[in-house]
């Protein structure tokens, strides 16, 4: 892998830097964690990058779609990645950011039928789809078929409303919901990077807090 002529720092050096900023106990727990991100759009690409930077041991990344030019205003892809699968493009970008994370990528659509086999290894599952019915399907499927998993879902990040309306709520012991809960992308104008990233940040932080036993 090219890093612009500079050799890749060894794993130990990157871990030491993480420990310096995040604390040894947290890094140890994060290194042992497996987190799944379902959907690699505005939410999922940002969640994955946050979690990779934080030193999560393994990320399971799932998306069936390809990068489109209309994604680039809010999703963590580059102009030269338009047309390639998001799972592949995000893997390329993540390997440049956090090369020692174990990445498992799947270019498939998550369904009620394949969700268990895709997600059974995860400690925490992040729902990061864009369609409301897909969100509800995943929540229903995970909470019914994988009830021991933590699930962090999102609803409501469109519009130019204040970012302070975006919250994390605990719905049940295992189910957390981030977002403003109301602004539907099909009903309001505006889907803007910082508001989507705020929601993604809520999800990534909740996933980290769950791994650290703080929730």
């Amino acid at each position: 892998m090219s890093t612009g002529g500079t050799p890749l720092p060894p794993r130990e050096q990157i871990l030491a830097a993480l420990v310096q900023k995040q604390g040894a106990d947290a890094v140890e727990k994060l290194q042992k964690a497996t987190i799944a991100v379902c959907g690699l759009g505005g939410l999922g690409s940002n969640i994955a990058i946050s979690l990779a930077r934080a030193g999560v041991g393994k990320l399971i990344l799932i998306d069936f779609d390809t990068v489109d030019i209309t994604n680039l205003h809010r999703q963590q892809y580059k102009m030269n990645q338009v047309g390639i699968p998001k799972a592949e493009a995000l893997l390329q970008n993540l390997k440049e950011i956090a090369p020692y994370v174990h990445y498992e990528v799947h270019q498939v659509k998550v369904t009620a039928e394949n969700a268990v086999s895709l997600l059974q290894e995860a400690d925490v599952i992040c729902e990061a789809f864009d369609k409301a019915d897909a969100k509800a399907m995943l929540v229903d499927t995970v909470l019914e078929k994988l009830p021991q998993k933590y699930l962090v879902a999102a609803s409501g990040m469109a519009s130019y409303d204040s970012g302070n309306a975006i919250l994390t709520r605990r719905i049940t012991d295992k189910f957390y919901l981030c977002g403003d809960g109301k602004n539907d992308v099909d009903e309001v104008v505006g889907l803007v990077a910082p508001r989507v990233m705020l929601c993604a940040a809520h999800q990534a932080l909740t996933a980290i807090r769950l791994v650290l036993g703080l929730e």
């Binding site: 959907g39 759009g41 505005g42 939410l43 999922g44 990061a128 789809f129 864009d130 369609k131 409301a132 019915d133 969100k135 509800a136 929540v139 879902a153 999102a154 609803s155 409501g156 990040m157 469109a158 719905i171 919901l177 977002g179 809960g181 109301k182 602004n183 539907d184 992308v185 099909d186 009903e187 889907l191 989507v196």
Partner: peptide, 10 residues
């Protein structure tokens, strides 16, 4: 009872 009503966007 809580009915969580998902809205689109992601």
């Amino acid at each position: 009872v809580e009915v969580v009503n998902f809205v689109g966007g992601g």
